[in-house]
């Protein structure tokens, strides 16, 4: 084997003429296209940020600016004057955190039961839960709105949190992972007298860090970006979340007021960017591997 390879190398280096240095047109074109694509992706953010830090009256000028002429914070000030922006932010964080933590519990307990425990109706219940994945969220919004009104939860955060606590996809995702954990570990613990809850809490969860992280990321991103439900469920601006809050600002100024809306957008996007840059490996992997479509 070794001799064969050596002979070949010898042949190559002695008999074949030196390859001509060719211009790698393919790589050049692909580098240009990739860079052009990156400019298209990044430029809109840059433009919004310069508008945020510019003067309100001169936000919309031609040719487009890429750095503010006279940097100022007046756009930010006027955002806080017009809408309870701090509350929007607080509400969004609060709801996303509660739902994420809540789903980690509800999904993992249900997933553990479906993966490992024996009980009557298990398969039927699981199939029923999974078939719910075929129901598009938007379809049940009208009756969900009515249910929340009947429960007296209209215009409360509970109306956003409670329905989000169940996630059939999350249950499915975790169940698939739990089934790959060797059963011997549990059997050994059971012999030592561990009950179901101890096994779930002390063995299954500690072994499931990566998949729980994936679920947490997916849930947080989904909740942070959710718009339709808060739009119909929340009426009080003080209780509103950031997504709907941004559109309220547009109502205050009219669609043409770039400056303040840019400031609000910058404040909404920059924290997301920071978190994204820190966790990009996990975030990209979580979203791409599960195929969550926003």
């Amino acid at each position: 084997m070794t001799t064969l390879t050596e002979t070949r190398v010898d042949e190559m280096s002695f008999t074949s003429p030196k390859p001509k240095r060719r211009i790698p047109w393919g790589s050049i074109v692909s580098a240009i296209l990739l860079s052009l694509g990156a400019v298209v992706m990044i430029a809109p953010f840059m433009w919004i940020i310069q508008a945020a830090f510019g003067e309100t009256a001169r936000a919309f000028v031609l040719p487009p600016r890429w750095l503010p002429a006279n940097p100022s914070l007046e756009n930010f000030e006027s955002v806080f004057e017009q809408v309870p922006y701090g509350m929007f932010m607080f509400n969004s964080v609060k709801i996303a955190v509660i739902v994420t933590l809540g789903q980690l519990i509800t999904c993992s307990t249900a997933a553990y039961a479906f993966a490992r425990l024996e009980f009557r109706g298990k398969n039927v219940l699981f199939m029923l839960l999974i078939s719910a994945l075929m129901i598009p969220g938007q379809v049940t919004l009208v009756p969900l709105f009515i249910v929340m009104r009947q429960l007296g939860l209209y215009n409360t955060h509970a109306a956003l949190i409670l329905p989000a606590l169940i996630n059939p996809f999350g249950v499915f995702l975790l169940r698939q992972f739990f089934m790959t954990i060797p059963k011997d570990l549990e059997d050994a613990a059971r012999v030592d007298g561990a009950n179901v809850f101890t096994i779930y809490w002390r063995i299954i969860l500690p072994l499931s860090g990566p998949i729980l992280t994936t679920l947490a990321i997916l849930t947080f991103v989904t909740m942070w970006n959710s718009y339709f439900l808060p739009l119909i469920m929340i009426n009080d601006p003080e209780l509103q979340v950031l997504t709907v809050g941004l559109t309220l600002l547009r109502g205050q100024y009219g669609a043409g007021a770039l400056g303040p809306i840019a400031a609000a957008l910058a404040m909404a996007i920059v924290p997301v960017l920071v978190v994204f840059l820190m966790l990009q490996k996990y975030i990209i992997k979580s979203i791409v591997s599960t195929g969550i479509k926003g």
């Binding site: 519990i105 509800t106 999904c107 307990t109 249900a110 553990y112 039961a113 479906f114 425990l117 024996e118 009980f119 009557r120 298990k122 219940l125 029923l128 839960l129 719910a132 129901i135 379809v139 049940t140 009208v142 009756p143 969900l144 009515i146 249910v147 409670l162 329905p163 606590l165 169940i166 059939p168 249950v171 009950n195 179901v196 809850f197 779930y200």
Partner: peptide, 28 residues
């Protein structure tokens, strides 16, 4: 006991599923 534990484990999801998915679906 295992079955009881299992029902307790799926209860939150099941309850939420009935109230916020199956219910609204039928209500539609």
């Amino acid at each position: 006991r295992e079955a009881m534990a299992a029902y307790a484990f799926i209860l939150p999801t099941l309850l939420g599923f009935l109230v916020f998915v199956v219910g609204p679906m039928l209500a539609s």
